[in-house]
């Protein structure tokens, strides 16, 4: 095999950056928000879903392969992409230009949020060694704590909105960068569809937060099966 040139690597890395944002990260985001939103339907579906996920064999390996490595890659590349941008939205006030700037900003916000989110959930879970059926009550307890305070709600609201925006706008960007949406009207129609997807995810996410806040679930209730 011929050794790829620097230019080829550059091209592939950026293409991969765009792709990882959709699969697996975007896909995980959708699943994560949808699954968590089961909380608004009832306690049992929610708990079952967490149980199911935490029962996946070699969960940590799966998570590292399909979430943490892509996420780390996407973040590192994302910071590189943002670093070469010389935003000029103040000068050229066009909607797409504003979205360009927001995409970079939201990416950074999501990164900070994820550090917090993982540091307060998955981190302690692994530290305390809560596996399988022990995970759900442990995590639910943490979330109950988060959503008791307005600060917690605010952090999650910002995190969720940033993530869903970054995802849906990124989905559009992916479709353009991979040459799926080409014409002007195709790009506009795509933008409308992705905006609706983003809005739906945002509503689901925020509804889940609201449910936690208004109707906290006692952690001990979940232990009994």
């Amino acid at each position: 095999m011929v050794k790829p040139s620097k230019d080829e690597i550059h091209y592939l890395l950026l293409k991969l950056h765009s792709l990882t944002g959709i699969v697996p990260i975007g896909a995980f985001l959708v699943i994560h928000i949808c699954v968590n939103s089961l909380r608004t339907v009832g306690v049992w579906p929610y708990q079952l879903s967490i149980d199911a996920i935490n029962s996946i064999p070699f969960l940590l390996v799966v998570e590292i392969t399909f979430i943490y490595i892509p996420l780390l890659f996407h973040s590192v590349m994302g910071f590189y992409v943002a670093s070469i941008a010389k935003t000029n939205t103040h000068r050229y006030r066009y909607p797409r230009n504003a979205l360009y700037t927001l995409q970079r900003l939201s990416g950074a916000v999501v990164f900070v949020f994820l550090v917090y989110h993982l540091g307060t959930t998955v981190g302690p879970k692994l530290w305390e060694g809560k596996h399988h059926f022990e995970a759900a009550p442990f995590l639910i307890d943490i979330m109950n704590g988060e959503f008791k305070t307005w600060q917690g709600i605010l952090i999650y609201a910002i995190g969720i909105v940033s993530a869903t925006f970054h995802f849906s706008n990124g989905l559009w960007g992916f479709c353009v960068s991979w040459g799926i949406l080409i014409g002007k009207s195709a790009q506009r129609n795509g933008a409308i569809v992705f905006a609706m997807i983003g809005l739906a995810l945002t509503v689901l996410g925020l509804a889940t937060v609201a449910e936690f806040n208004m109707n906290p679930l006692p952690a001990e209730a979940t232990v009994v099966r």
């Binding site: 230009n97 353009v176 960068s177 991979w178 040459g179």
Partner: peptide, 28 residues
């Protein structure tokens, strides 16, 4: 791949060239 899809190019082009369409097509 260094295009960030800010699409200001197409807004300021004095000749109304469909630059973003060209970019997407070339991406494909």
């Amino acid at each position: 791949t260094d295009c960030g899809n800010a699409q200001v190019c197409v807004e300021v082009c004095p000749k109304n060239i469909p630059l973003t369409e060209s970019i997407a097509d070339i991406s494909r």
